[in-house]
């Protein structure tokens, strides 16, 4: 029973990692850039929602605040692309990596200025409720996290594979110039994907803040989500979720069964092992080019 309980809480944590990883993968899929600030986006989304809905701030009803903050974050993602990332058009991945790291610093600083550095929790209607299945006691937040994540991943997966926009994004990522010649509106596609990544980050932030507390340095958790994305092989949406779940499940089990001090090493050790033995992830997207 204990094992099952650990498993569920690990899965719920893993879903949050998976959602951040989903943000990485979305942007990577459409622009081949990696947004190192995705974790900070999540933190910002959480704080925007807290600022809207918590009694101490504006006190907007929860179910109204959620769509508003998702819209705000999506708009922010779009504006960011429009005024910052687009100036980098065609530059190397490394330049974008460094830019987004710097962006993370700025976001952390701004969030700290506005909401302070104390950990805060999101007041939500699910807090404190439990779901009892036989002997198993599940927090409603954990259940909500898992359900929302699975639905979102499935929806985005379908979106990428079925819709015209999804295909356009894949095209734009493989060769910008060729995609442009084929009539793909590359700039609009890129703006759209950043907005989408902002929205996903906001959802991840809301779920995370409902489960626990956020403070401006929570964004550094994004590094663990890298492990998730890399294990999934960057560029595969279900892979990102699977990677997130693996990392999330490993953590509680490692801290329970492995000596203290070694346990927090586990996700990163796994990350390095995956990178060494399968450099492009377990669900690799790299194919050898045939001339």
């Amino acid at each position: 029973m204990d094992t099952l309980q650990l498993l569920i809480s690990g899965l719920a944590n893993g879903c949050v990692y998976g959602l951040i990883a989903l943000g990485f993968v979305l942007i990577y899929k459409a622009t081949e850039a990696v947004n190192f600030a995705q974790g900070d986006f999540m933190m910002l989304g959480a704080f925007v929602t807290i600022g809207l809905t918590n009694a101490g701030y504006m006190g907007v009803p929860f179910w109204l605040a959620v769509p508003i903050s998702i819209t705000i974050m999506a708009a922010l993602g779009y504006l960011l692309d429009r005024f910052v990332i687009r100036l980098m058009f065609g530059q190397s991945q490394t330049a974008v990596v460094i830019l987004t790291i710097a962006l993370g610093f700025v976001i952390r600083f701004v969030a700290g200025m506005i909401w302070g550095h104390e950990p805060q929790s999101l007041e939500n209607p699910l807090a404190g409720k439990e779901l009892r299945l036989g002997e198993l006691v599940l927090g409603m937040e954990d259940v909500a996290v898992i359900v929302v994540t699975v639905l979102l991943t499935w929806g985005l997966y379908e979106f990428f594979n079925r819709t015209k926009m999804g295909l356009a994004m894949q095209g734009a990522s493989q060769n910008q110039l060729a995609a442009y010649y084929m009539g793909v509106p590359v700039k609009r596609v890129q703006g759209f994907i950043w907005a989408l990544a902002g929205a996903v980050a906001c959802i991840a932030g809301i779920l995370f803040a409902a489960k626990g507390a956020v403070d401006p340095s929570t964004g550094l958790m994004g590094i663990k989500a890298f492990a998730a994305a890399v294990i999934g092989g960057f560029g595969s949406l279900p892979g990102a979720l699977a990677g997130g779940l693996i990392v999330g499940v490993i953590e509680p089990f490692a801290s329970r069964y492995i000596a203290a001090g070694y346990s927090q090493v586990a996700p990163y050790a796994l990350l390095l092992a995956v990178l060494i033995f399968r450099p492009h992830g377990l669900f690799s997207q790299v194919r050898v080019k045939k001339v």
Partner: peptide, 28 residues
């Protein structure tokens, strides 16, 4: 030697993980 197989962002992420591990390794 293992890092030679990694390119671009993968190398950045691998080295980032290594940097985080350093903290724990020093404690261990």
């Amino acid at each position: 030697i293992p890092a030679l197989r990694l390119h671009g962002i993968y190398l950045a992420i691998a080295t980032l993980a290594m940097s985080i591990l350093t903290d724990d390794i020093i404690v261990l």
